[in-house]
Simulated assay, not measured.
Amino acid sequence: MTTLDFLKAKKENKKISMITCYDSTFAGIVNESDIDSILIGDSCAMTMHGEKSTVPAQMDWMVEHTRSVRNGAPDKFILADMPFLTTRKGLEYATDCAGRLLVAGANAVKIEGVFGQEDILKHLVLSGIPVMAHLGLTPQFYNAFGGHKMQGKTEEAAAKIIEEAKIAESIGCFGLLLECIPAELAKKITESVSIPTIGIGAGVDCDGQVLVLQDMLGMSGFKMRFVRQYLNGRELIKGAFNAYAADVADSAFPAGDEIK
């Protein structure tokens, strides 16, 4: 899949599936699945490093997670997050960070917000670095928002998100990620731009959907309204761990052909 395939999918009304991933083992499984694309989110700060928000994510983390995922999923389109403040330290620094992610194996980068960094988004696009703009609930603004709260609920707030979406389109972003905004607003944005929208907590009318791998597999304990759990992974894995511990305690492992 390429950025052109994202645009083609929107034109042909084919939904795009995306899932987060951060390591080569899970990436290998995703690579064998029907999922279209992978997001290496700065959510790794929470899912992989135990932090309370995405703010602590480091650039070096993102590079290493990107490299690991590319090694495991050589056939998938990979989108990588630009972590907190990497686009707020000047054009040269942002370009260097985005370049590192592409060198590590990403096909494109995702950047939270548009206002105040239009020049950086445009520069990256013109430099051959595909950009997806992330609008609505932008987790790097966790402290400014006072937590993970739905955005765009008022007429004024919705108008600002629509304006950002149209600016991102005019700059040349190949897509939009819409997070935690009213379904009606997401539908309006999706219908008003020519680039595809990927939703998370933004209703069914987006051009595609993304979920955090650990959430949809029931491993994180994170149960937001918009998360559908496809597996009770936490209990299944814990059960396997307990069975192994019991076999070790009972000297039932190793046994038979496991012993040479």
Rank of each mutant, 00 (worst) to 15 (best):
G203N: 07
A133T: 09
E156H: 01
C21F: 01
G99C: 07
A144K: 12
I162D: 00
Y230R: 10
L79M: 13
Q117S: 03
I171M: 02
V63S: 01
S192A: 15
S68I: 00
I16W: 12
E155G: 14
R234G: 08
N143Q: 12
A108K: 14
K11Q: 12
A73K: 04
S251M: 11
Y244C: 12
K160A: 09
F26N: 06
I189C: 08
K153A: 06
N143F: 10
A186C: 11
V69T: 05
N71C: 03
D257I: 05
Y244E: 07
N143C: 03
G256H: 14
H148R: 07
K160W: 04
A106G: 05
V55K: 14
E156D: 04
L39T: 03
G172Q: 08
K10I: 06
F222G: 02
A144H: 09
A104Y: 14
E164A: 09
E164V: 05
R88Y: 13
A246P: 00
Q140M: 10
G256A: 13
A243G: 08
T66Y: 01
G239M: 08
P182H: 09
K15N: 10
F115V: 06
V63I: 15
L211S: 07
V63L: 07
E191Y: 00
L137V: 00
T3M: 10
M18V: 15
V103Y: 02
A106Y: 11
R67D: 06
E92S: 12
P74I: 01
A159G: 04
L176S: 09
A98H: 03
L185S: 10
L102A: 13
E164G: 05
K11E: 12
Q214M: 10
I198C: 10
I35P: 09
I198N: 11
M82S: 11
G72Y: 13
K11N: 13
I162W: 04
E118A: 03
R225P: 11
G72E: 09
I237K: 14
T95M: 15
I129W: 08
L135G: 06
E169Q: 14
F141T: 11
L39P: 02
D60R: 06
K166H: 13
A186Y: 08
D5Q: 15
I40A: 02
I19R: 00
L213M: 13
D119S: 13
E184W: 12
Q209P: 00
A183H: 09
H49Y: 14
K260S: 04
G201A: 01
E169F: 02
G90P: 11
M150N: 01
V193D: 02
L124R: 10
L177K: 08
I161G: 05
L124A: 11
A45E: 00
F115W: 04
A106F: 14
D36G: 12
I78V: 14
K10Q: 07
E112M: 11
V227I: 15
V55C: 10
V69Q: 06
